[in-house]
Design a protein around this nucleic acid. Structure first.
Lengths: 222, 222
DNA sequence: AAAATTATTTAGCTTTGTCTAAATTAACCC
DNA sequence: GGGTTAATTTAGACAAAGCTAAATAATTTT
């Protein structure tokens, strides 16, 4: 699938994959340079190297998209990242807001066998601690029919299944308010003044959350 | 203790530490280039960089020795390497001859906290799967009064506690013959013709091993 | 002690991956 | 449709880590 790629090459592939998931394809030089916090000139260099290796297709000044091989490599990186995050939280008791940077390092470890054994050790988890799906060893990704909390109809029971914002402050907010993965809730009322949401949790607790929170939490209807 | 070192710098420190353990100090440019399988010119370059950072002391054409900081860094790398090996064998069911290369990668992951939690997860092991001592978080190394099997007096009961040769063929030889860590044995007879050893295991099995094997197995008297 | 061998350093080159500044091309706006 | 702005590429530099070949120093041999 992939020869030996440098960490830099892997990071670019991941960035391109991430952007294309968000904004579709083709992916511009500019969006990559923003995502990677690097100069546009560096991106041009790397685009040439990755094209050379047939991991991406590039049309001058048009933008980039991943080849099948590039996509598979990116998906495998995502698999590694999410399995390591799961390991760190489940086995080493890190909290979900601490694990991202560590997983960024660990995802570059080269060994198919290691990852497959880690997967088995963790009992083949389908989702990571943030609710993101973990690609299986064939690159298949379990998609879930989830919806943003902000789009949930009133009085529709639902379960929290993921976050759209992975930053520490948001994760800590959820920690404090108890809106963790698996929490069951319904929207009692949508307040039109500022689009905040009046929630009711399974235990009867009521909680008022801002529009911003509603737009960053994924829920699944029950 | 250590600022951020590159993997190359870390590998050189480890090599210097390893050689100085084996052959004492100072460590020559040449021995480093042999150990690292790299050119003497590259070693000269790196020696200059590491001196600059005060990780080693160097006197032109005399040789190198680690500073306190350099030694602490090397010991911490050894700690990481051996803890990861232990993890791979104990938790992911790798065999002891498979784990070295993987640990070489994993030992460069930068996080004190990760290693301390891994240590705890593994229940603070004192020795790795090859019987080598694991430095604790303060860099203390449990030394053992071990002796080479070839130096064990006849009829002195002993336990296998470590290997001096970490290569796959040797480890697989031990696997096949049952001479694993923890095996109890006595030397019944030393055959002067070729210095091979007639062993008797705890279960009564007899086993003839070559001089070479005797010189690569550590045992502890009972 | 001179010659031969071995070890070390220097010089110069290569590849990665980064940068800034300048030049070019594309896109947008009035 | 011409001008302004934004995006992209080119050119030229730099640092890290490696290499080979040549020069120099140290050690061993005879």
């Amino acid at each position: 699938m992939a020869e030996l790629l440098s960490q830099a090459e892997e990071n670019y592939l991941k960035a391109i994959y991430k952007i294309s998931q968000r904004q579709g394809t083709p992916v511009s030089n500019n969006s990559i340079s923003v995502e990677m916090r690097t100069s546009a000139a560096s991106v041009t260099d790397m685009i040439n190297r990755l094209s050379q290796k047939e991991l991406i297709h590039y049309q001058k000044r048009k933008g980039v998209h991943l080849t099948e091989m590039g996509r598979a490599t990116a998906v495998h990186l995502v698999r590694k990242h999410r399995l390591w995050e799961t390991f760190l939280v489940e086995k080493l008791n890190f909290t979900w807001d601490e694990v991202h940077d560590l997983a960024e390092q660990l995802e570059h470890i080269q060994s198919r066998e290691l990852i497959n054994r880690l997967d088995e050790f963790l009992d083949f988890p389908k989702y990571d601690p943030h609710g993101d799906p973990i690609p299986d060893r064939n690159g298949e990704i379990a998609e879930r029919q989830q919806v943003l909390l902000s789009q949930l109809p009133e009085n529709q029971p639902a379960v929290v299944v993921g976050v759209k914002d992975h930053t520490t402050p948001f994760l800590q907010y959820l920690e404090r308010t108890g809106l963790l993965l698996g929490a069951e809730l319904t929207v009692n009322e949508r307040l039109t003044y500022d689009n905040s949401l009046q929630l009711e949790l399974a235990n009867g607790d009521k909680l008022l959350v801002s529009q911003k929170v509603g737009q960053h939490l994924f829920v699944q209807k029950k």
